[in-house]
């Protein structure tokens, strides 16, 4: 049986790929392509955050009675990543390659650290605590994200 959080892991990789495209285009000064890729990247990231914040985290908190702790840290890191994406948008508008690259570089490390923590610690916790519930969380996550990975 696949874990309920599998769609989230899959979607992490999808976001990474679009990030790499956006960053490479900014680096090459191809701003039109960078604009498209950045918009797509931010839309995917927001869809991912929303899925976690609206579906996974509440389900986990209900199943475990645990509020704050790891989920609060994940929410805080989402906010940090949103700040950095906003910096990327400002740099994109200004066609400032250095500022875009710097914000993207910072975001990449933060994002990867965040993903490692989720994939190695939080998601396994969610998978085991949600296994006992009758809710089809895996289905809900898949419905929101799996289709997006095809685009």
């Amino acid at each position: 049986m696949t874990n309920p959080t599998q769609p989230l892991r899959h979607h992490h990789k999808h976001c990474d790929d679009i990030f790499a495209t956006a960053e490479a285009q900014a680096h090459a000064g191809e701003w039109a392509g960078c604009e498209t890729a950045s918009a797509k990247f931010i839309a995917e990231m927001e869809a991912h955050f929303a899925t976690e914040e609206q579906v996974l985290f509440p389900a986990f908190e209900t199943a475990t009675g645990m509020s704050g702790g790891p989920v609060a840290v994940m929410r805080m890191e989402h906010a940090q990543m949103r700040d950095l994406m906003a910096q990327m948008v400002v740099a994109l508008k200004a066609r400032d390659r250095n500022a875009y690259g710097g914000a993207a570089d910072t975001l990449l490390i933060l994002m990867q650290q965040h993903n490692v923590k989720e994939e190695n610690i939080l998601y396994p916790m969610c998978d085991s605590s949600l296994a006992a519930t009758v809710l089809d969380i895996g289905g809900a996550l898949g419905e929101r994200l799996e289709g997006r990975c095809q685009t």
Binding site: M76, Q87, G102, A103, D105, T106, I109
Partner: peptide, 11 residues
């Protein structure tokens, strides 16, 4: 805290 914009790592 939230909303703080430190310089990015390349700065």
């Amino acid at each position: 805290g939230p909303g703080t914009m430190p310089p990015n790592i390349r700065e």
